[in-house]
Amino acid sequence: MTKPIPDAPDLRAPQDIDAAWLTGLLQGAGVDAVVDSFTAKPVGSGQIGDSVRFALKYARAADGAPASIVGKFPSADPDSFNTGVMLGNYVREVQFYRQLSPTALVSTPYCYGTALDEASGRFVLMMEDLAPAEQGDQLKGVSLEQARLVVDEAAKLHGSHWGDEAIEDLAWVSGTRAAPSGAATPEMVAALWTAFRERYGERLEPDWVEVGERLSTRFAGFTQRGDGPRCLTHNDFRPDNMMFATPAGGKPVTVLDWQSVSFGTGAVDVGYFLAGALTPDQRRAAEPELLARYLEGLKALGVAGYRMDALKRDYAGGGLLLFLTAFFAAMVVKRTARGDDMFIQMLGSGAQHAIDHDALSTLA
C-alpha cells in the first residue's frame, strides 16, 4: 500500500511562509525536526509556476532532516497565473502528486505536502531539493546517454497505467472521458498562431510557417489524431521539466512539472522530447536505437501487442505537439528573452520532426 501525500499545514504564498509553518510541514511528513530559521530564493525557470528553495536551519533535527526543500507556487505574473487557472494546470499538478505519483513508476521528487484551493487556483507543492542535480535546458539539449535515461523514464510512466480504464474516471486528468472539454478551441489556436507569426515573423523559416498554417487550420484533426493504446502522458516532456545528475551527484533523471498530465498516446511524449532535446541530425541517427529501447521498456512492464509500426505512427505526433505548445504558450505566458529563444527552438525542432515523419498527412 502506498503512503498518501500529506497535507501542508495551510495554503500560503511563499512570502507568508515562516519557520513554524515549515516545522508543521516536515513533522506532518514524518520528519522529526523543528525549524529555527531559513532563507528563501527563487529557483528554476518555469513559465507558469514559481519555485522557491528554502534553506533550513534547525533548532532540533533528527538524522535525515533535509538541509533544504523546494516549494512550487502559482506564478506571480498575472498572465501566466490566468493561463495556469484557465488550463487547469495548477489543480492538475497537485492532484497528480496526491493521486498518481505513487503508482506512476516514473522518477518524481519526493513530496512533503500539498495544499490546494481549486476555486482560486492557489496551491502549495513542497518537494525535496534535488540538488546537486541540475535542471535541463531546452536550448542546450541533452547528451545521447541522457536521452536514453529519459526514454527509460517515459516507458515507466506509460507502462504504469497502460490501458487503465480507472484513469478515465479522473476528471482532472486531461483527455479522459470524465474531463471537461479543453480550453483550447480551434478559433483560439488559429488566433494565437496569427499573433505568433506577427510577433516572431522575422525569426521563422518558410517550412515552419507552412507547418503552422496547416496545423492551426486543422487543429480539430490534430485533437482527434490516432486511436492507439492509452496511458498516462506528461504532455510537456522536455529538458526544462527534468533534473539531471551532475558530477557532484544527484539522481540520474527526475521528471518535474506535471501540469499537463493526460491520458493519451505515450509515444507522443517520446517524439516531443527527442524532437527538441537532440539536434535533427542527432535525432535521426539515434531514433532506431531509442525507439527500440522504449519498446523494450514497455515490454518489461508487461505491455503486449504494441509493435514498432504502431509506435512509429504514434511517435510522429510528438513534433506537432511540440510545435503547437511553442506558439500557444508563447502568447499566453509572461514574455522573457529566454522564453522567446526557447519557443523558437521548440517550434523549429518540432517542425523538422513533423516534416521528417510526414506528420501533417495524418491531420484530417
Rank of each mutant, 00 (worst) to 15 (best):
W21T: 04
V31Q: 01
V31R: 02
D32V: 12
A33I: 00
V35Q: 00
D36A: 15
D36I: 00
A40S: 14
D50P: 06
L56R: 03
G64F: 06
P66K: 01
I69A: 00
G71L: 00
A76H: 09
P78L: 09
N82F: 05
L87H: 03
N89F: 01
R92T: 15
E93F: 01
V94T: 04
F96C: 03
R98I: 04
Q99F: 09
L100T: 09
L116H: 05
A119N: 05
V124N: 10
E128L: 03
A131I: 04
D137F: 12
Q138C: 10
V142Y: 12
L144Y: 13
R148A: 14
A154L: 14
A155W: 08
A155C: 07
S160Q: 09
H161C: 15
E165P: 06
T176N: 14
G182R: 12
A190T: 08
W193R: 07
A195L: 10
F196W: 07
F196G: 02
R199T: 13
E202G: 07
D207M: 12
D207S: 14
V209Q: 07
E213F: 04
T217V: 11
F222C: 08
P229T: 12
R230L: 15
R230E: 11
C231K: 10
N235V: 02
M243F: 15
F244T: 10
K251V: 11
V255L: 15
L256D: 03
D257V: 01
W258G: 01
S260P: 00
G264L: 08
L274D: 11
P280S: 13
D281G: 10
R283G: 10
L290F: 08
A292Y: 07
R293F: 06
G302C: 01
V303P: 01
Y306W: 03
D309E: 15
G317A: 13
L320D: 00
L320N: 00
A330R: 04
A330S: 14
V332I: 15
A337G: 06
M342E: 13
F343Q: 08
F343T: 07
M346N: 10
M346W: 15
H353Y: 04
L360K: 03
